[in-house]
Every structure is written in structure tokens, then in C-alpha cells.
């Protein structure tokens, strides 16, 4: 039941990504192209998502625990550190180059377009490279 519920949340997410236009790199890149063929649509995607989630999360937090789990697992970090800012800056550069972000690419995989598969493989490579670099540094560069 838990897994079926999880699948349905993914399905709703993916339909939202597709309907909103986030799945289309041409549209995503045009959102950032204020000096060229600007398309402000993506601001409406964020507005719609944050509006619904702000209210929903507030209501959800009134529950003692989730339906299919014994506790809410929320990020607890509150520090603004170099990793957060540098990582976000790097992410934005990649997003601006490719036009896909991970949340758009996952549902887009279902269209069987090879460009999406290429992007997904590249993201996996990046995730793995970062992890490998972190563990290398932990093993070799810390006393």
C-alpha cells in the first residue's frame, strides 16, 4: 500500500511537470533568457507549486506522524555554508547549459527520448563523482 501510494505521488508529480512545461528544455531555457526569447511561464509553475505546498505542509504538520511511516523525516540543517552556496551555484550553471533539471528529467524518461537518457546518465555520473571526491578527501586529506 505504501509503495502504491508512493507511485501515485510520483505520477502526480510527473503529470504536473509535463503539464506545466518544465519537461521542455526550450521553455526552461527561455525562462532564463530575459535578454532574448523570454518566456515567464516557469515563474507560474513555482508559484503554483509553492502555494499548494505551503498550505499542505502546514496542514500535514498537524498530524503526529505520516500515514505509512512512524515519523516525518525533514532536513534539520539550518546553516548557510560554502557547500550550499557553491553547490547551488554549480547546479544552476549545469541547469543553464542543459535545460533539464533532475525533477524534470525523471518523468521525461518516460517519453523514451534519447536526449533525456543522456542527461540522466550524466547526472548519475555527476552524483557519483561528487560522492567519490568526498570519500577520497575523507580518506586522504583529513588527519
Amino acid at each position: 500500500m505504501k509503495l502504491v501510494f508512493a507511485l501515485v505521488t510520483g505520477l502526480i508529480f510527473g503529470v504536473g511537470i509535463a503539464v506545466s512545461g518544465m519537461m521542455n528544455p526550450a521553455k526552461v531555457l527561455n525562462f532564463f533568457d530575459l535578454a532574448g526569447s523570454w518566456d515567464p511561464s516557469l515563474a507560474f509553475v513555482m508559484a503554483g507549486a509553492v502555494f499548494v505546498a505551503s498550505i499542505g505542509f502546514r496542514l500535514a504538520s498537524k498530524r503526529p506522524s505520516p500515514v505509512f511511516s512512524n515519523r516525518f523525516q525533514l532536513p534539520t540543517a539550518a546553516q548557510i555554508d560554502v557547500k550550499l552556496v557553491a553547490g547551488s551555484a554549480i547546479f544552476g550553471i549545469g541547469w543553464g547549459i542543459a535545460g533539464f533539471c533532475p525533477g524534470a528529467a525523471l518523468p521525461a524518461l518516460g517519453t523514451f527520448r534519447w536526449e533525456v537518457g543522456l542527461f540522466a546518465a550524466a547526472v548519475f555520473t555527476g552524483l557519483w563523482l561528487h560522492r567519490a571526491a568526498v570519500s577520497f578527501r575523507r580518506e586522504h586529506l583529513t588527519a
Partner: peptide, 21 residues
Amino acid sequence: ASLAGGAAIGLSAVLLMVGLG
């Protein structure tokens, strides 16, 4: 369409939080 799609994305996030936390 973007507002409606965004609302669906927000809804999915809320459901995952309510369901699985």
C-alpha cells in the same frame, strides 16, 4: 497550464509528506 501543473507538483509533495513523511 504552468500554474495548474505547478499546483499538481505541490500536491504531490504534500501527499508524499503526509503519506511517507
